Amino acid sequence: MEIKPEIAERIELLEEKFRNSGQDMGSYLDGLLYDRYLTYWDYISLDTLLSLQKPETHFPDEEIFLTYHQITELYFKLIIHEQKQVIENPNLTAPYFIEKLNRIIRYFRVLINSFDIMIKGMEREQFLKFRMALLPASGFQSAQFRMIEFYSTPVENLVDHKIRKNFSLNNSIEELFENIYWKKGGIDLKTGEKTLTLKQFEKRYTPRFLRIANEVKGKTLYGRYQALAASEKNNPKLIEALRTFDSSVNVNWLLMHIGAAYRHLDHGKKTVKATGGTNWKEFLPPGFQKISFFPELWNEEEHEEWGKEWVNHMFNIENKN
């Protein structure tokens, strides 16, 4: 049998590859000979994937709630995948940075635009019943979302804004972490004690969060941006991409959650608490959190009005006539 030149060339390259790694190419060729063809369902582990939806109740709409959250976590995984490539790139340029940010923005755009499923895609009556079987679990416990924050900006930018001015780079990661903004969302407003939701979350993830925060100290997305040469740092498209990412996460994503909360948890003068036991009206609004990954890219007025206008006009029904 005649072997085509291009095939012979590939065989030589393979032989060199395996020889350099101390492997026997013949054994690998035997593996290819006996291996079965890959199928789509095996490649994506379809049967396993579809077996992961395990509702806690018999209400049909819980399947929607559960599946949507799993999809969200997969998008978070993709976002972290892109963040790490920026953080680890030894020769970072503005075009590369922009390309990765645009991917991240695209993922968040999908999440934000699809959140209508959570707002209008479930019956309120079913939701208020099946959610009681999920206590004390809460979306507050999304570790990947917190990792996105740690990879994006120094921990001092995540400190509760009311006390943020008291902290700086001189404080240890551990000190900053103890005063991080989202811990306030896990405090029972009546007792002032940590909720079980927060206690569980801290026990499970604090070591990992601290490890990540220390590993990326000075190398977060914000840190990599600040270290760029002036010609790269002042790239208008890069600045716009950073601002879009910032507002997507810290304004628009939160506003979608507020929309869902008002639809399902707000009932006239009576407000139903979130499953984690927190008062979502005090925690979710971006105007209350005032978190920005890249604070130097926003002016004072923009910081002051952070997320306020949309909340006041669209969701704050208490202020409507």
Rank of each mutant, 00 (worst) to 15 (best):
A137K: 14
L78S: 06
H303E: 08
G22R: 02
L158C: 01
T93N: 07
L46Q: 10
F115M: 15
L210I: 12
I80F: 02
E2W: 07
I112V: 11
I180Q: 10
N234V: 09
I64V: 15
G139T: 01
G26F: 09
E123N: 13
G218A: 09
I71F: 12
N316T: 08
E301N: 05
P60T: 13
Y75N: 00
Y107H: 07
E82F: 08
I163C: 00
T153S: 10
L128E: 14
E305Q: 14
E2I: 11
Y34T: 14
F76I: 01
T93D: 11
S21W: 01
I258H: 00
L46N: 04
G276I: 03
M147D: 12
K320Y: 00
Q23P: 00
R36T: 07
N235I: 06
T72Q: 15
S142L: 12
L134S: 04
L13M: 10
L196R: 15
D160F: 08
I7T: 10
T93H: 08
W298R: 02
Q226R: 15
T244G: 02
G223S: 00
T206Q: 11
Y222Q: 10
R164K: 10
I317V: 11
Q70N: 11
T57E: 14
G192S: 11
E240A: 14
F288K: 14
T275D: 06
V272P: 02
D42M: 02
L297E: 04
V159W: 04
I80H: 05
Y34G: 15
P95L: 08
T39S: 12
F201R: 03
T191Q: 00
A94G: 09
M25Y: 08
N214F: 03
Q70C: 07
L46V: 06
W41M: 03
M118W: 10
E174I: 09
D61F: 10
N171D: 08
P207A: 11
E12D: 03
N312M: 12
K203G: 05
R211S: 14
M1I: 10
F76C: 04
G259E: 07
E282L: 01
E240H: 06
K219H: 13
I79D: 06
F167G: 10
P285S: 12
L14Q: 03
K219Q: 11
K100A: 04
N91L: 10
F145W: 11
I44K: 04
W253Y: 03
N91R: 12
Y28D: 03
E178C: 05
L189R: 11
V311G: 02
R103E: 09
I180H: 05
T48M: 13
I258E: 01
Q23F: 08
P55A: 07
F108V: 02
S292M: 14
R224D: 05
K273L: 15
I258Q: 01
V110M: 13
R19G: 02
L158V: 04
N214V: 03
K17Q: 14
K184T: 07
G185Y: 05
I163E: 01
K290Y: 00
W298L: 09
I44N: 08
T275S: 11
E240S: 14
N91W: 09
P95Q: 11
N250D: 08
I80C: 09
Y75V: 00
L49G: 00
K100T: 00
L228R: 10
P295N: 01
I239M: 05
L29C: 02
I173V: 13
